[in-house]
């Protein structure tokens, strides 16, 4: 299973499923990370965490721990 934290910077991933539960999961989905959406991994913070993502025309930051719960498939570039 490939998760969002494993996608290299500059690549685009397509969300397959969001694991986890409760408030965190709901929050992530409310921010637009839903099944089928394309996410570009913009960059990692200088100390390696969090991750900056680009999706739905805006920039979003999430921690690696949360990214690990997002199952994706990488799009061929």
């Amino acid at each position: 299973m490939k998760t969002l934290d494993q996608i290299a910077v500059g690549n685009i991933a397509i969300v397959k499923k969001i694991h986890g539960e409760g408030a965190t999961r709901r929050r992530i989905m409310d921010m637009g990370i839903t099944k089928g959406v394309e996410i570009k991994v913009r960059k990692f913070a200088p100390l390696g965490d969090p991750i900056q993502l680009s999706l739905r025309g805006y920039e979003l930051t999430i921690r690696k721990d949360d990214a690990r719960k997002i199952e994706v498939e990488q799009e061929k570039r």
């Binding site: 409760g22 408030a23 965190t24 929050r27 992530i28 921010m31 969090p50 900056q52 805006y58 920039e59 979003l60 930051t61 999430i62 921690r63 949360d66």
Partner: peptide, 12 residues
């Protein structure tokens, strides 16, 4: 308590 997610928009 469960740690709150750090989900932050990067404003332009």
């Amino acid at each position: 308590g469960s740690p709150a997610p750090f989900v932050m928009e990067m404003p332009t």
